[in-house]
Amino acid sequence: MSERRKPRLAVWKFASCDGCQLSLLDCEDELLEVAGAVEIAHFLEASSATAEGPYDVSLVEGSITTPHDARRILEVRAVSKVLVTIGACATAGGVQALRNGRDVDEFLRLVYARPDWIDALATSTPIAAHVKVDHELRGCPVNKHQLLGVLSALLAGRSPAVPRESVCMECKRRGTVCVMVARGTPCLGPVTHAGCGALCPGYTRGCYGCFGPMETPNTSSMAQALRAHGQAPDAIARAFRSFNAGAAPFAQEADAHDPS
């Protein structure tokens, strides 16, 4: 078999904490395999050496929060054959989407000594609100196995399998006892997108919803169940306003319980 040209991989950062990019560097056992399978052409978190595009696969972390980034994502899209968004910031606007609908100018005055130096948008929006996205990986941060799964699928030329079912299905497959039913612990698992492997329930914690809404989230029934488990309306609003506050089903449910 003749040696084919290695696919060129780029990793891009927008408004984010770098945690999702770190998930790639966290693939310690597989990192050499990744480096062997692709040419890592642009990945500032890993190396300051960069190569010009175009790129076969771009992994995009972070949300769009500035006019500069709104222009930059168009350039990234233009030099990328396949664009994969990674993490809650890129797929839903991240925790910084809490500012959406609020007075951002007031935030700037409160936080910065020279707010006039800041050029920020009024909203934090997902990448898909700006350019066409080919595949999305949810999570805060993304799951490294899912990340490797998507890269492997793209390298093999097949469509990545990223189930949009509930976290409950992962819980039940691994045999974890339901923390909500058996302990009365509030848990967002039934409305949350699978992918983490039911990490928190595995440690007897309720799901925090890091992976955002599952395919058909019945958030109002979920909220009623949280109510029945002793959660006050403001606690329910906060539960839906975390890493995926900007995802429409969670945002709407949070608003429905916000006493303000």
Partner: peptide, 13 residues
């Protein structure tokens, strides 16, 4: 359907 979460727990157990 108003109550069902479509979470699939019933089928898993």
């Amino acid at each position: 359907a108003q109550r069902c979460l479509t979470c699939a727990n019933c089928t898993m157990v």
